[in-house]
């Protein structure tokens, strides 16, 4: 079994949104929507300021409430890597999953179904990195299998300090931010 995760180095990320735009073209995200986005958290008082810039998207949670709340099973955990996906033609567009995601990672595609980041499973299954990861000019994003202790992501989590978003929501997010 594999457990896919992203490890993103916030100390290198410059918030350039390249990851967002690459996702748009790679996945034909409808105009005006986004599957990933940049959050900037600014703290402190000028001039002693800290920034944390995060490239955010669906966390492919280990305990995904979007899956448990889905009445049709359209939202499901993929066989490979624990990736959370939506089957478009099982989805009725009830938005229960949107309402249950604490990260607001989902949206309703103009065609009616719930949509979100797929971890670029179509690329990953071909052995490529997700589009956002492969485009990032600062090389701050890493994708891999947490169940493999030799993977880059596992190693990074072993060596570096990190946090996840909203661990207190109990969803078991799989996007890790190195700090």
């Amino acid at each position: 079994m594999a457990r896919y995760a992203m490890v993103i180095d916030t100390t290198k990320c410059v918030g350039c949104q390249d990851c967002v735009i690459a996702c748009e073209t790679e996945n034909n995200v409808p105009e005006g929507y986004c599957r990933d986005w940049i959050t900037t958290a600014t703290s402190g008082k000028f001039p002693t300021v800290q920034l944390e810039i995060r490239s955010e998207r669906c966390n492919h949670c280990s305990e995904p409430p979007c899956v448990t709340s889905c009445p049709t099973g359209a939202s499901h955990i993929h066989d490979v890597g624990g990736v959370v996906l939506v089957n478009h033609d099982e989805c009725i567009g009830c938005k229960a999953c949107l309402a249950s995601c604490p990260y607001d990672a989902r949206f309703i595609h103009p065609d009616g179904y719930a949509d979100k980041c797929t971890f670029c499973i179509h690329r990953v299954e071909k052995g490529e990195d997700p589009a956002c990861v492969s485009v990032c000019p600062t090389h701050c994003m890493h994708f891999g299998d947490l169940d493999d202790p030799e993977s880059e992501v596992s190693k990074l989590l072993k060596e570096r300090k990190y946090h996840t978003n909203l661990p207190e929501a109990g969803t078991g997010p799989n996007i890790y931010y190195l700090i």
Binding site: Y33, W37, T40, T42, S43, I108
Partner: peptide, 9 residues
């Protein structure tokens, strides 16, 4: 201060 570039309907 939190800012986001997300803009989904």
């Amino acid at each position: 201060e939190l800012t986001t570039t997300r803009h989904n309907e």
